[in-house]
Amino acid sequence: MKPRQAKFTIGQVVRHRVYPFRGVIFDVDPVFANTEEWWLSIPEDVRPRKDQPFYHLLAENEENEYIAYVSEQNLLPDRSGLPLRHPQIEELFEPGADGQFAVKNNALLN
């Protein structure tokens, strides 16, 4: 299986297609790179394919901020323009164009 080109980019604000959370992308895996246990914990009828990009998000819902690992098929661009409150955003990013974020110098190299 040849990995697909990632549809979304680091610093882009996205939302989940099904679940009520959104966030900013801080890393991309060209194909699934988490544990088999994690993948099998997803109900089979909604389990994503492994042969697609998976994104690491600084994610948030109405109650919490957390790190999420999400398949490309389950993400959509977030064009709401609403601010994000995840506390790690300021460590890694600065405001960029069109509501997206720009990586701070060397922030993602550690």
Rank of each mutant, 00 (worst) to 15 (best):
L75Y: 01
F32K: 10
I89H: 00
E60D: 09
E60N: 03
R49N: 10
S71N: 04
N106E: 13
N106V: 10
A107V: 10
N105K: 15
V103W: 00
W39H: 11
F8I: 03
F8D: 01
L82I: 08
V46G: 06
Q12V: 11
D51I: 04
W38L: 13
R79C: 10
L75D: 00
S80I: 04
G96T: 02
H56E: 04
E91W: 13
F21W: 10
L109I: 14
A6I: 05
P83M: 05
V24N: 01
Y66T: 08
N74D: 02
L76E: 07
G81P: 04
K7N: 11
E62Y: 06
L92M: 12
V28K: 03
I42S: 10
A68I: 03
V28H: 05
Y66V: 07
A6S: 13
Q12I: 04
V13L: 08
E72S: 02
R4Y: 11
W39R: 07
R17T: 14
P20H: 06
R79S: 12
A97P: 09
F54Y: 06
R4G: 11
W39D: 06
F101I: 01
K2R: 15
P95R: 10
P20W: 05
Q100C: 06
G81K: 03
V70W: 01
E72M: 04
P87F: 07
V24E: 00
F93D: 00
Q100M: 05
A59M: 00
N110G: 15
D98R: 13
Q12D: 03
Q73H: 06
N64K: 14
W38P: 08
Q100G: 04
H16V: 11
